[in-house]
Design a protein around this nucleic acid. Structure first.
Lengths: 138, 138
DNA sequence: GGTTGACGTTAGAGCTGCTCGAGGCTCTAG
DNA sequence: CTAGAGCCTCGAGCAGCTCTAACGTCAACC
């Protein structure tokens, strides 16, 4: 299977696939005579797992690591580790959800004030909030 | 006021403040004889507005632009524009909230399966989903 | 007068996770 | 023969900071 087909099947782009390879997150596939990458089913599975894990919100490195272990036969251990990772991701996620809905309330409030014709000073007020530097949940 | 104090007051870091200046998003402040930056109240207000807007989820450029307009006296216009920006941000935000809670449901589901002792193959399944490349809401 | 420690300065690299473009090769269909 | 789709590599670019190295400044204490 060539890179375009693979990318399409996995719902990603050829650019991303090559990126993963360049960064050593998946092994480089065989090459055909013309230099084109040729992917096996195994390759596709591993990459698919990586992508699936990414979509669950794990970091790229984490996902690559788990995908590697699993495709080397230690799927059971993976599922143990996955379990705890998922638990902590869910905690983060709930946190993030709270933040975002808090943000929405602030926006709604500001919207209402602006709509009422006020251009209040201070236009914005920087309350004491937690400010995350953690991009891991996007 | 020096940079450390300013950063603390605004709940940010000296690094970030210098970053904004380097990128021309806020004007460079006066310098003391020793070369230290000296911020006036005006400087602080403008920077504070920028930071507040950032925290409302606006892009850095957008925030800088509005902060600039406002600190040049066109606060009323700013509040008009802000109104429409906020409306569209809220739309994005709702979308993002839906996504995240959907993700949470997926995680919960997977968690339950793993907890039940299954190391199911395929461990993960890449369903058809929307996959955003839009980082603007973090 | 010497030292410590907190603060300031700069230029520049690094982070995440891709995305995109330039410039070129290969293959298939018409 | 040519057009177009797909592949190749290399390298830059994005947001929005964060951090480091190597240095200067200043007040306080001994």
């Amino acid at each position: 299977m060539r890179i375009g087909t693979l990318a399409q099947q996995l719902g990603t782009t050829v650019h991303a696939v090559r990126f993963y390879e360049r960064h050593g997150l998946v092994p480089a596939p065989e090459r055909a005579e013309n230099g084109y990458r040729e992917y096996t089913e195994r390759d596709a599975e591993r990459l698919g797992l990586l992508i699936g894990l990414r979509r669950l919100g794990l970091s790229l490195d984490q996902s690559a690591l788990l995908a590697a272990s699993c495709s080397e036969g230690r799927c059971a251990e993976v599922s143990d580790e996955l379990q705890s990772l998922i638990a902590s991701k869910r905690t983060e996620l709930k946190h993030r959800l709270r933040e975002l809905s808090h943000l929405d309330r602030r926006l709604a409030h500001l919207e209402a004030r602006l709509h009422a014709g006020a251009a209040p000073r201070p236009l914005i007020d920087l309350g004491k909030e937690e400010h995350r530097h953690d991009r891991s949940l996007r």
